[in-house]
């Protein structure tokens, strides 16, 4: 059992496409993802974050350096199957990853490909659908579901393969606020309750803030890596790289620069309310 489920060592990746919009490359990245952790990868479009995701389950293989999944080298094509079974992937467009005309058949697709026994598939499908809260929709045709529901079905399709790690490549980019919350809640509970490792790629900082660890990418490299508090304290770096800074953090900073004594490291609205209320108490206002 490897402590790090994903281990990226000095990986570099170039697209040799000649077109004008050639995608960003990965430049000499080293990174390890601990088993059971919830890592968010934050970056603007073209920062290389999607390429990084594709390196994690052998869709892409780095030209330089190595990527290991559970100690398996992704450049060894005889291991591709085992690697994809360990690290599943959920994509941005919910419509383009559902293959069957009925929800439960779609969730069964992965285990069927793996040659699992029919009765065992049934068990896995039912438990996967329950853990994403879509069991009641098992007989539905996918096109009658909302975006958030489709993404949850896609997630169930991955966990039914008994993957240890899920890489989600901007799973919320095309969803409405309700769908985003649904997906985030599902992913968090899978991480907490089933111990599944999560790599969550996004450009929404409020989603990244819910992870244990945030990796910020820009121009194919890692520019920040740490807990949400550590990362969001680098407001200027984030802004320069075209990312948002939590409103509460920005607002707290504004007040601090006006001479109001607030603690450092405020990230959420609740923390901000707390801090401002404390300051008001000191002044005898409440």
């Amino acid at each position: 059992m490897h402590e790090n489920i994903i281990e990226i060592k000095n990986a570099a990746f170039f697209y040799d496409s000649e077109t004008a919009n050639a995608e960003a490359v990965i430049k000499n990245i080293s990174l390890s993802v601990k088993r059971g952790s919830f890592v968010a990868v934050l970056g603007h479009n073209g920062s290389g974050k999607s390429t990084l995701a594709k390196l994690c389950n052998a869709i892409l293989v780095p030209q330089e350096g190595k990527v290991f999944v559970n100690g398996m080298d992704t450049s060894d094509s005889s291991l591709t199957f085992e690697i994809r079974r360990a690290v599943g992937m959920v994509f941005q467009n919910p419509d383009n990853q559902i293959v069957a005309t009925v929800v439960e058949d779609d969730v069964a697709f992965g285990p069927e490909n793996l040659g699992v026994e029919p009765k065992e598939i049934r068990r896995r499908v039912d438990s996967a659908l329950r853990s994403v809260g879509m069991y009641d929709f098992r007989g539905f045709p996918p096109h009658n579901l909302s975006g958030g529901q489709k993404q949850r079905v896609a997630i169930a399709g991955i966990i039914a393969m008994r993957t240890e790690c899920i890489v989600l490549d901007e799973p919320t980019a095309m969803l409405d606020p309700k769908g985003r919350v649904e997906v985030m809640k599902t992913v968090k509970s899978l991480n907490r309750e089933l111990g599944i490792t999560v790599v969550f790629i996004t450009h929404f900082m409020d989603e990244a803030a819910q992870a244990d660890r945030i990796i910020v990418m820009d121009d194919g490299g890692i520019i920040l890596d740490g807990t949400p508090k550590e990362v969001f304290s680098n407001k200027d770096t984030l802004r320069e790289s075209g990312l948002d800074v939590p409103v509460a953090a920005e607002f707290a900073d504004m007040l601090i620069s006006e001479g109001i004594d607030l603690p450092k490291g405020i990230l959420t609205a609740d923390e901000c309310v707390e801090a401002v209320a404390d300051a008001a108490k000191k002044r005898g206002l409440i």
Binding site: N57, I59, F81, R84, R85, G88, M89, F91, N93, N96, Q97, V99, F109, G110, N113, L114, A154, G157, I158, M161
Partner: peptide, 12 residues
């Protein structure tokens, strides 16, 4: 995109 997703789910 679908082909990618299917490969990721070990379709062969």
């Amino acid at each position: 995109e679908l082909a990618f997703a299917m490969e990721c789910r070990c379709y062969h």
